[in-house]
């Protein structure tokens, strides 16, 4: 098991390295930050001075080596727009993003999984159709459409909730609901599909035929076996906690990591974009590692497979 996890961890590190290297190259190939930050009316002298000050007049290879050395020292660079360390800028936005994404994740799990289980246990009934209808609507409506619709209803028409900003907890209600609804819909569909697949398995029929009460069959046999795809999806959702709110943060003017990313990309604030991608990639691979670890707990076959070399 340890060897299995070490292998996964090594792959995770490689993934993070590839992601940030890719971002480094693409960002520098796609635009000159001097022109983007200073604007099209900037004088040639301003552009030259800016490039020199930020080392952009060096070759991309030299820039990469400098950047890589700095990372090894724990220096993730300075924001060209802000003049402060990029990690500082990102760190101060993380609480705002988590203030949305964690409650949204709880809504996704708290509503999505029970709804999926309920629908699967009432397959073909009106309940099932209603839940799945809502689920399809929930994940097909883009989050910006849902967000703006909620603003129209609850802010413009009813005047109950603010349309954006981050003054107090009330401002978080609409963005959390917007994010939660879509994720809950996806989880409901995943959970239902997984449950239906498991419920059709011979061991469920066997347990039932042996006289095991239906409640115990569901809790003891169906749910644990149906959990793997659901855990995978939840793991993915946990992985996107940092950058999963890009659109919603823009719609609701919520000053989190997602909005910082949008602004940093549009201004080619290289250090900030790279820092965010590093944090996001690290979160995602860590989450995947945890999911891999959970697979081992949920499915003994994987555990033993890992012990015998991962076959």
């Amino acid at each position: 098991m340890i060897r299995y996890l070490l292998g996964r961890a090594a792959r995770a590190l490689l993934t993070v390295a590839l992601v940030v290297t890719f971002a480094f190259v693409v960002l520098r190939m796609s635009a000159d930050p001097a022109l983007v930050i200073l604007g099209p009316e900037a004088s040639p002298e301003m552009i030259v001075a800016f490039r020199k000050a930020w080392g952009l007049d060096e070759s991309i290879f030299v820039q990469y080596l400098d950047w890589f050395r700095a990372i090894l020292r724990g220096d993730l660079g300075i924001s060209m727009r802000d003049g402060r360390p990029a990690i500082e800028l990102v760190a101060e936005r993380i609480p705002a993003t988590l203030a949305l994404t964690i409650p949204a994740l709880m809504i996704k799990i708290g509503i999505g999984i029970p709804a999926g289980i309920w629908a699967s246990l009432h397959r073909g009934t009106m309940v099932d159709r209603a839940v799945m209808g809502l689920a399809v609507a929930g994940f097909t409506v883009p989050s910006f459409v849902l967000g703006l619709t909620l603003v129209l209803i609850f802010s413009v028409w009813l005047g109950w909730l603010p349309s954006g900003g981050q003054d107090n907890w009330v401002h978080a209600v609409l963005p959390i609901v917007t994010m939660g609804v879509g994720g809950a819909a996806i989880l409901a569909r995943f959970t239902r599909s997984a449950m239906l697949e498991v419920l059709g398995q011979p061991f469920i029929r066997t347990a039932s035929a042996k006289g095991v009460p239906w409640g115990r069959v569901i809790r003891g046999h169906a749910l644990p076996n149906a959990a793997i795809p659901t855990v995978t999806m939840v793991g993915f959702m946990v992985g996107t906690l940092m950058a999963g709110a890009v659109v919603v943060e823009s719609v609701f003017s919520w000053p989190g990591v997602g909005r910082l990313l949008v602004v940093a990309v549009s201004h080619r604030d290289l250090a900030v974009v790279q820092c965010i991608l590093l944090v996001v990639a690290a979160t995602m691979v860590t989450s995947n590692l945890v999911v891999d670890f959970l697979y081992g707990f949920l499915d003994p076959r994987l555990r033993s497979g890992a012990r015998t070399g991962g076959h």
């Binding site: 910006f144 703006l148 603003v151 129209l152 802010s155 413009v156 005047g159 603010p162 349309s163 954006g164 900003g165 823009s250 719609v251 609701f252 003017s253 909005r259 949008v262």
Partner: peptide, 18 residues
């Protein structure tokens, strides 16, 4: 001055009195 990048959000905020 608050930064509201989306046009629709600025208009909705105006219409709602925010």
């Amino acid at each position: 001055f608050v930064e509201v990048p989306e046009v629709a959000s600025r208009i909705n905020g105006l219409l709602s009195g925010q």
